[in-house]
Write a protein that binds this DNA or RNA. Structure first.
Length: 258
DNA sequence: ATGCATGTTCCCGG
DNA sequence: TCCGGGAACATGCA
């Protein structure tokens, strides 16, 4: 699925496309995972102006007129797509947003796991691109989890998925199986920098490749993560390991703290 | 053909 | 209670 950098690009595309447009009709084809009734969702959002779209963690938030927020998590297979005028709803369509200016976007999901949430509860879990250095140090200091799992733990820090966790840990030269609290502060500082650097660089790459994208993921620029990558940019053999049911890619350049 | 990838949740055992 | 492993979900791609 799309990860944080892709979602950031989607959010800016959605803003360019739909900001200040009024939602005319919300066509709810599949209501699975929805936290309110279809009637309530329609009632709250239809005829409201879309004020902005934001990315928070791995979800998008559509802010509508009267303080109504629609959160949307795409999960593994959710995809957004612009629908041309008169175009039929695609297969596996869950939601269609028809705006008064005749623009429409559709949410499809073959897995039916995409999760729309009306007015998601306030959440203090920091976003990976917004966490302060102090909060990040505190997060590491009392956790005996392996660092890769901690970075991917959405209840600790939001937005980092399997592939970017590998990229970040290689950038910081830290082994993914290091114990979080065993990482010394100087190294943790580097890790903090790597998070921002890797994610921002990815946003830049994706934007340059296609600032208008609304779906899919782009990974061409990844240094470590991917079954096709044999060596790191510095020439070290890429090894792999299952961590938390996911494949971690790493090299001997990455130091183990335990 | 086989199996891997992908996020989250839930279930189980240590 | 925390930690880690595994399954489940549907589909496309090597």
């Amino acid at each position: 699925m799309a990860e944080l950098p892709d979602l950031t690009v989607f959010a800016s595309k959605l803003n360019r496309l739909l900001k200040n447009e009024t939602l005319h009709t919300l066509d709810i084809r599949v209501a699975t995972k929805l936290n309110v009734s279809t009637a309530e969702l329609k009632k709250k959002l239809e005829n409201q102006k879309l004020k902005k779209v934001e990315r928070i963690g791995k979800s998008l938030q559509f802010h509508f007129g009267d303080n109504e927020i629609l959160g949307l998590h795409l999960m593994l297979k959710g995809e957004l797509k612009e629908l041309d005028k008169g175009e039929l709803a695609p297969k596996n369509c869950k939601l269609i947003f028809h705006f008064t200016g005749e623009k429409s976007i559709v949410l499809t999901d073959t897995l039916k796991q995409a999760t729309p949430t009306l007015n998601p509860p306030e959440n203090k879990i920091p976003d990976a691109l917004a966490i302060s250095q102090d909060d990040f140090f505190n997060l590491l200091s009392n956790r005996s989890k392996r660092i890769k799992e901690l970075l991917m733990d959405q209840k600790s820090i939001r937005g980092i998925g399997n592939s970017y966790a590998d990229e970040i840990l290689w950038n910081a030269r830290i082994s993914p199986v290091s114990t979080a609290k065993a990482i010394p502060e100087t190294i943790a500082r580097q890790l903090y920098i790597s998070i921002t650097e890797v994610l921002k660089e990815a946003i830049k790459e994706i934007t340059q490749a296609n600032k208008d994208k609304l779906s899919g993921e782009m990974r061409d620029f990844m240094r470590i993560h991917g079954s096709g990558i044999k060596k790191s940019p510095t020439g070290h053999l890429v090894k792999s390991l299952k961590i938390g049911g996911r494949t971690a890619y790493f090299t001997a350049e990455q130091k183990l703290y335990s």
